[in-house]
Every structure is written in C-alpha cells, then in structure tokens.
Nucleic acid binder design. Sequence first.
DNA 1: TATGAATGAGACTTCATTCAT
DNA 2: AATGAATGAAGTCTCATTCAT
Lengths: 201, 201, 201, 201
Amino acid sequence: MAQVEKVQKSQNDKRQRILEGALKAFARKGFYNTKVSEIASEAGVADGTIYLYFKNKDDLLISLFEDRMEWVIERLETELADSPGDVFEKLRQVVDMHFKLALEEPDLAEFITVELRQSAKFMKEYKNPRFLDYLRILERIVEVGQEQGVIRKDIDPRLFGRALFGALDEVLLTLTFSKNHQVEEKTRQVADLFIEGLRAR
Amino acid sequence: MAQVEKVQKSQNDKRQRILEGALKAFARKGFYNTKVSEIASEAGVADGTIYLYFKNKDDLLISLFEDRMEWVIERLETELADSPGDVFEKLRQVVDMHFKLALEEPDLAEFITVELRQSAKFMKEYKNPRFLDYLRILERIVEVGQEQGVIRKDIDPRLFGRALFGALDEVLLTLTFSKNHQVEEKTRQVADLFIEGLRAR
Amino acid sequence: MAQVEKVQKSQNDKRQRILEGALKAFARKGFYNTKVSEIASEAGVADGTIYLYFKNKDDLLISLFEDRMEWVIERLETELADSPGDVFEKLRQVVDMHFKLALEEPDLAEFITVELRQSAKFMKEYKNPRFLDYLRILERIVEVGQEQGVIRKDIDPRLFGRALFGALDEVLLTLTFSKNHQVEEKTRQVADLFIEGLRAR
Amino acid sequence: MAQVEKVQKSQNDKRQRILEGALKAFARKGFYNTKVSEIASEAGVADGTIYLYFKNKDDLLISLFEDRMEWVIERLETELADSPGDVFEKLRQVVDMHFKLALEEPDLAEFITVELRQSAKFMKEYKNPRFLDYLRILERIVEVGQEQGVIRKDIDPRLFGRALFGALDEVLLTLTFSKNHQVEEKTRQVADLFIEGLRAR
DNA sequence: TATGAATGAGACTTCATTCAT
DNA sequence: AATGAATGAAGTCTCATTCAT
C-alpha cells in the first residue's frame, strides 16, 4: 500500500470512528444531551481530535447525516436497480428495506427518527439534500406507476413521498422502542396499506 | 365571583401565559435552544415565577404537551361524536382536523411536529399518555370499521394509527415550512390514500 | 434612602468590586494570564456575576480603563484648575501627580503601564478616548505656554504630550519594580528635563 | 565550506526563519494572540520544528528579544563609534537611529513597543539584559557629557536613559499607527527637547 | 406570590506541546 | 532533523435554578 493511501486510510479511519461514536451517542441520548467528550471517548480519541475532522458539534451532526444518508440511498438504489418487479413490488422493497435497515442498524434508525426534524428545523442554513434525494426515489416510483396507468393520477408523488416516509419513520420509532417483534408482518401491512391506497381502479 | 375562584383564575391565567410563552418560544427555536428567560419575557413574568408553576424546564415541556394534547383530543372527540358519517367519513374528518388545527395553531403544529419525538425519547419516565389517547381514537375507528366489515381485517389498528399519525405529521412539517398552499387538496389526497388502503374488497 | 437609590448603589457596588478585583489581578499577572475566575474570587462574586456587568473579558478590560482614566483625569484637572502657577509650574504638577498617583495606587500604575499598549493595539475598534483626553491636557499647557511666549514654538504640543507621557510611563515602570526610593528627586529631575527642554530662550 | 559549517548554517537558517516568522506574527497580533502554528506557517516549517530550536513559546519570545536587540545595539554602537560629534550630536544620532530603524523595520518596532513591557513584567526570571545594554549606551553618553561639563550634573544618567527610551517608544507607537509623516521633523523636535533639557547653563 | 440578581456547574472549544513516523 | 496528527489541560462563557427581598 502506498504511503499516501495509508495516510488517507488512517485519516478516514479516525473520521469514521468519530462518526460512529457520535451515532452511538446521539442514538442513545440525543444530540443536545450528548457531550463532545462522550463522543470522543466512544470513538477512542481525545476531545480535541474531533475538531481536527469537524468544525464543531453542529458540523459533526450534519456530517453524520450526509454520511449515513448517502450510504442508505446507495443501498436503496442498488437494490431497486436490480429489482425485476413492477412499481408496487418496488414500493414493497422500499418499505422492506427501510425496516430491514432499521433492524440491522438500530442506532442509525434511532438517530434519524429522532434528530432529523430538529436539525431540519434549527440549522436553518442546512437543507439536508440527502434526505431530499431519498424522497425523490419514492417520488420517481409513483411517477412511473402513474405513467404506466397502474397508480391513480390524483395523488401528488411528492406528497406521497412525505406521507410514506412519515409513516415508516413513526412506525419505526415504535419498533425501536419495543423489542422488534413481527417486523415482517408489519412490513407487509404498511406496504399493503400504501399500495392499495395508490392503486388505480 | 368568590375570592378563592378569583385567585385560582389569576393563577391559571399566569400559568397559561407561561405555557403560551413556552409554546411560542419552543415553536420558534426548539426546546434546547430556548432559554427559560426567553419564555419568561414572552410570558411577561419574571424568570423565577416560572418555577412557582413548574418544577423545572422539563416539567414545563411535559405540561405543555399535556395541556395542548388534551385540548386537541377534546376537540377531535367532540367533532367525531357529532359526526353522522361512517368510519371512512370519520377518518376523513380526522385528517381534515389535523390539518385545520395546524393552520389555526401553527406554533402548536411546529411544536408537536418537532419536539414530540425528542421528549418521547429522552424523558424516559414520561410516557406521554395524551399522545397515546390520540392514537387510540384512530385505533377505535379502524376497529369499528373492521367489525362492520368495511375495513380489511389484516391491518393492525395500532399500526395503522402510528402510520397515519406519522404521515400526517411529516406532511405537516412541509406545510408549516412552505406557505400553506392547497391544504384542502392535500387533505383529500392523504385521506384518500389511507382510506383506499384500508377498504375491504 | 429611596429604594431606587439603594438598588443602584448595590449594583454599582458590585460593579466596582469587580473592577477592583480585575485591577488587582491584571496588575499582578497581566490581562492574558488572569483567569476570569480569579477576578471573580478577588471580587468576592461568582464567575457568572461578572457577565451580568460586563459583556466579556475584553469589555471588562476596556471598562476598567475608562473608569480609572476618568478618575485620574478628573483629579488632574481639579488640581490644575486650582493651581496659581505658570505653565512650567503646571507641568511640574503634572509630573508630580503622575508619580504621586502611582505611589498611592500601585496596582493602577502597573496596570496602565503594562496593559495600555496591548489594548491600544489589539482591540482595534477601541480608541481609548480617555487616554487621548489625558494627552490633551498636556497639549493645552504647552499651547498656552507658546501663546505666552515662554515655550519655544518649534515643538509640536501633541508630540510633546506623547513624549512626556512615554517618559513618565517608562520611569514609573522602574519605580514600581524597585522599592520606590527618592521619588521626589526623580520627579524634580524629569520635570526639569522637560521644562528646560521646552523653555524659550 | 566544510560539512559541519554547512549543517550549522542550515540550522541557523531555519532558526532565523522561525524568528522572522515570530516577529511578523507578534507584530501583527501580539504574543498572546499569536498561535505557534501561525508562526510555523509564517516560517514555512512544521509546528513541531519550532520545538527543536526553542524550548517553548516563551523561550521563543525571549530569544527574539535577544536576537533583535543585539542587532540593534551593534548597529547603534558602530554608528556612535564612528561619530566625530560631541555628546549632543551623539544623542541626536541615537534619536535619529531609533526612528530610522523603526521605519526600516516596522515589525520590529511594533514588537518592541508593545511586547517589551509585558515580557519584562511577566517572565519574572527574564531580566532582559539586552535592553539594559541599550539603556547603558544612553547612560554613558550622559556621563561623558557630565564629565565634560556640558551636561548638567543634577540629572541621574540612568533616569535619563529610561525617560528618553520611554519618550521615543511612545512617540514611535504613534508613528507606526499613523502613516509615518514628517519623521525627520519629529526626530529633531524630540532630540532638541532632551538636549536642551540636559544642557548645562 | 412575585421578582430578578446571583450563583456555579459544566459545556464547548482552543492551542501549546508531544511523539510516532 | 523534520513532520503534523494527536493530545488533553484549561479557559471562557452560558444558563437553569435559587433565594433574599
């Protein structure tokens, strides 16, 4: 491995460790109740090290969003791209993945579920572009379905995207609280609810 | 009016003013970014006075939830009780009222939208019973519809309640951000989406 | 004493105690080596109290200048106003008072001697108007002497003011270091030096 | 050039570059507001490198004094040694050089003007011997003048040195602030002021 | 009951210094 | 000798809460 790569790897490594520590801490106690020193000790670095990689605590929060949402979106897009199914099948996959991810990455789920809105609202300058990307994926599926005539045309795709995300997010909140029972059944129900609601008759 | 009542009225009055000040401030800047002194000045009382009516800042937040949710639920229940319509009509009314309220009381909408989850999550001992009451209203409607055979029986009423609330909440978030255009059309679409999703076939 | 006066007295009292604590601490260790908490404990108040009276540490420094220089200038002006002597006698008085003050208020002397320049230089927006007032007093004496024809006209009064202040300030620095011996003799010598230098021939 | 010398030259070179970087930075922002990393980047070396040549930041400050004062004193002594003039002429030369140097090396002037006192005061163990050397030059001139009978004997040479340095220093402070106009005229006036003040009658 | 000045614990952040490379 | 990423001690300032009036 070349010297340059090695350095970059170690840098990314430390940055990643901090992001992971932050995720864990934010998930557990929320942004405002988490001390920078807690993130540092969770990440196994000194307090000051965090400021080598992030401008301040807010920047760390935003970076964490960017990083994790990017990852989520990539996964979602890859899976959808491979999907042979129709639009309803794709919607089912979205719901499925949403829940599956939440089970695999409970910290991430808690984090997004709880902190997304706060940050959306109070870090005025931050537009949260990754989240908009996520919504756009949902919109596209509905648009395609409408073009194909299988989805009713009187539903605004953008509104649908918000509604579905909101529903998933809120249900997730309960899932992460309780011990995640019957997730598959819940996945089916939520997917069904929205699919039947969308279907053109 | 008897002396005792008068005193109690004035007490309630000051308590209410504090709650209103808090609502305004929390809506604008969020719980953690709002100083107790800001609430006090918004309410026109001294900082210390707040501690005569509330144990601490957390207690103020919780009390605000209690107070406002109670009011919302009462209104919802009254309206639904008077309603002559079937369960789908009732669902439509719920969605309608949710949005109508948000337009009438934008501070309340922002507040619930943004703070509900944080508080749910990080004030561990607080179970937010009023919110559960709200969900129970939705559950009841679905249950009745299932008994009547007009709503499919493979949907868990509790899950549905969460999903609907989540959807409404998220859509509201966008409404309060943007200048609330075409609310009625959005109301119809969201209601339709869920009603068609629920309908037994 | 009326209520209002009492409150104002107590406020001024605390403000004064903080200024005195700051003067003592700055004189001993310099602005940058003095912790806010040291000033607080010197003043017998809590750390946070300082921020009720001053915006921040810089503001405290500037306020201290303002306050003390105002006091010095008032004293100097009063004494000069009463003085029956000619301009040379007045200059002698200025030098005399400068040293006398430094003996009476060694902390103030150390403080001005050491911190004046730093603050002049690095608090760019702060113009130190009181110090300029002080210099203007010196200028005026020279101008009067020039009008009377007893002081040579080829000396710029403003330049003279600076030079005399600088000389006094530097000599003071040595005085406050060493145990202030023979102050009167030194006063005479410095006064003589400048007076003979100024005298028209 | 032998290997050893070459190494030493390169060492000196880096040391000098650090001193120059420090001078520039201290002049601009003052000792306490200058970060070691700023000095390093000004000097074009790594932060850590500074600690190969200086024990710590304080040591760097002191070394800078030593280095620059030594240079100033050498220049002053050389010029005075060559001077054919009498003591008054020599004093004139001192004043002249003081100002001339400040124009040639404005960073050095700002640095000495602002930092000399702080450091004198708060680095207790440091006696600033170079500065004392500088004063001694002034003292010697006065002593010689007194022996020759051209300077009044009732002036303490040491006191005079301080006073002259203080005056020059303070006037310089104004010069470096404002755009250095009429320096020669000011030189003449200050020199005259002190010479006439000293002259035996 | 009401006030608001005072408190002081504690958070974020900086930066001189170190040390593995 | 040189680097610069990492450290962590320490300082400024905030703000929820108290309490004398």
